[in-house]
């Protein structure tokens, strides 16, 4: 177990290093630097600015410097927001994203699994059909369409919920719904098909032959096995919610990291793009690690050996 964790940690560090290096060189391959857009700056000022941020040094020196700072947890200064560091930007904008993301993930899991179980246990009946229709729409309609539809119906027409901003629980309902639409539907479909597969297994017949009640057979014997694929989906789920936040935060004007990231792309703010990418990647790698460990807990057949 310990060996496995150490091994996975090493792989994670390698992954992050690859990410970091790739991002760094991709960023510096970008046509047009951060001081190129809008009205052109006088060459002198531009050179000064570039010297200030070390952009005039050879690429490998910049790379080494960046690594050095990163090892201290310092993601460097932003280029577009005078006097603010990338760390500050993330610390300022991530909490909103994290709240929204956490609510969406919990919502997807609870409702998704519940709907999947209901559908599977009523296979072919109206409950099953209803869940499948909702779930099919959820995976096929893009999140920005769901978001705008929700906004149009609940904010513009019914005036029930706010359409933008992030000032309380009320502001989270629509964005969280839009953000979890895909994953909720995916989990419902996954749970359904997995549970249908599991209840045909021999060990379920054994459990029934022992005289156990239907509830014990389903919730103790079947569901635990059926949830194994759902656990493997947790990694992509986090990634999906994270990516989804780019458009959802933009549509609902939520001051989160996703919106910041999209803005920084438009601004060609190298340092902020790089910092955010590294931050996101670390988040995902850590989540994947947790999911793998969780997987071993729920399925005893998986041996955590190096």
């Amino acid at each position: 177990m310990i060996n496995y964790i150490i091994k996975r940690l090493v792989t994670s560090v390698i992954t992050l290093f690859v990410v970091l290096t790739a991002t760094f060189f991709l960023m510096h391959a970008l046509p047009g630097g951060p001081f190129d857009n809008e009205k052109p700056l006088p060459p002198k000022i531009k050179a000064n600015l570039e010297a200030k941020y070390g952009l005039n040094k050879p690429l490998y020196e910049q790379y080494v410097m960046y690594l050095k700072n990163l090892s201290r947890g310092d993601l460097g200064p932003t280029l577009k927001y005078e006097g603010r560091t990338v760390n500050e930007m993330i610390a300022y904008s991530f909490p909103a994203s994290a709240k929204l993301g956490a609510v969406s993930i919990i919502f997807s899991l609870i409702l998704g699994i519940y709907l999947g179980v209901v559908a599977a246990l009523n296979q072919g009946k109206w409950q099953d059909r209803l869940v499948m229709v909702i779930a099919t729409l959820g995976v096929t309609v893009p999140s920005f369409v769901i978001a705008t539809l929700l906004m149009y119906v609940f904010s513009v027409k019914l005036r029930l919920l706010p359409s933008s901003g992030f000032a309380g629980p009320k502001y989270m309902i629509l964005p969280a719904l839009a953000l979890s639409g895909y994953s909720l539907s995916f989990i419902a479909r996954l749970t359904r098909s997995s549970l249908l597969d599991v209840i045909r297994q021999d060990y379920i017949r054994t459990a029934k032959a022992k005289g156990l009640s239907r509830n014990v057979v389903i919730y103790k014997h079947a569901l635990r096995n059926a949830l194994i694929p759902v656990v493997t989906y947790l990694g992509p789920l986090v990634a999906g919610v994270l990516t989804g936040s780019f458009v959802i935060e933009k549509i609902f004007a939520i001051p989160g990291l996703g919106r910041e990231f999209v803005t920084s792309i438009g601004n060609r703010d190298f340092m902020l793009i790089m910092g955010t990418t590294i931050f996101y990647s670390t988040l995902l790698v850590v989540c994947n690690l947790i999911v793998d460990l969780l997987y071993a807990v729920i399925d005893p057949r998986i041996k955590l050996e190096a």
Partner: peptide
Amino acid sequence: VRGNEIGMIFQDPMTSLNPVL
């Protein structure tokens, strides 16, 4: 009755026990 008055065993022991319990 099942498991109490009538017990049953099946063909394939490899798949007849619940793998996660």
